[in-house]
Amino acid sequence: MAATTLDLRDVPPPERHPKIHDAFESLESGEALELVNDHDPKPLFYEMQAEVDSFDAEGYEVEQRGPTEFVARLPKK
């Protein structure tokens, strides 16, 4: 599965979710958006699950790689 990576660690918090939604929208079916973040993006998971029909919640994965590095994979149906 192809993935687009978006590193959000230097993006101001108010700009993160719009940037994520824009990047996710541009994906093709079967692709995924990989996010690098400074915290666990669990609230984003719930937001995507509730608001984005093409979000594959069952395929969602998150890995903590360090105290301030989380990598989440948001697949698109």
Score class of each variant (00 low, 15 high):
A72T: 04
E28V: 15
H21Q: 13
E15H: 13
P67R: 10
H17S: 02
E51T: 13
E34W: 03
P43E: 15
A72L: 07
H17Y: 15
T4R: 14
K76S: 05
P12F: 12
D7M: 08
T68Y: 01
T68K: 06
H39C: 02
D22L: 12
T68V: 06
M48I: 06
E51Y: 15
Y60Q: 01
E31K: 05
A3M: 10
V36Y: 04
D7N: 12
A72F: 07
L35W: 04
F24C: 09
E69T: 01
K77F: 11
P13N: 14
E31P: 00
H21C: 12
M48D: 03
V11M: 12
F70S: 00
R16G: 06
A2D: 09
L8Y: 05
P43F: 14
K76Y: 10
K76D: 06
D22Y: 13
E34R: 09
N37Q: 06
H39S: 05
E61M: 05
V36R: 00
G59K: 07
E58S: 07
N37A: 07
F55A: 04
A57G: 06
E51A: 10
F70M: 02
A32V: 01
Q64K: 15
P12T: 14
F45G: 01
G59Y: 11
P75S: 13
P14G: 08
P14F: 15
F55S: 02
S29N: 09
H21I: 15
T4D: 10
R73V: 11
A3T: 15
F24W: 03
A72E: 03
E58W: 06
P12G: 11
H17T: 11
V52S: 08
Y60T: 01
S26Y: 14
G59N: 07
E58N: 10
P41Y: 05
E61G: 02
S54V: 07
G59F: 11
P12V: 14
E47A: 13
I20N: 02
T68E: 05
E63S: 12
E69K: 00
D53A: 15
Q64H: 11
H21K: 10
P14E: 14
P75Y: 04
K19G: 02
T4Y: 14
K42M: 14
G66F: 06
Y60F: 14
D22A: 15
A32M: 03
A3V: 08
P12R: 13
D10W: 07
N37M: 02
V62A: 08
Y60A: 05
D22I: 03
T5N: 05
L33W: 07
F24I: 04
D7S: 08
E28W: 12
G30M: 09
R73G: 01
P43S: 15
E25F: 08
T4K: 14
F70L: 01
A50T: 13
F55N: 01
Q49K: 11
E25Q: 14
E63D: 09
D40I: 07
P75I: 04
R16Y: 13
V62R: 02
F55W: 04
P67W: 10
R73C: 09
L35K: 03
P14Q: 15
A2G: 08
V36N: 01
K19S: 07
G59Q: 06
E58A: 06
K77M: 12
T5G: 08
A72I: 04
F45S: 02
E69I: 01
D40T: 03
F55V: 05
I20H: 04
R9A: 05
D56F: 01
P14M: 14
D56V: 00
Q49M: 13
P14C: 08
D53Q: 11
D40E: 14
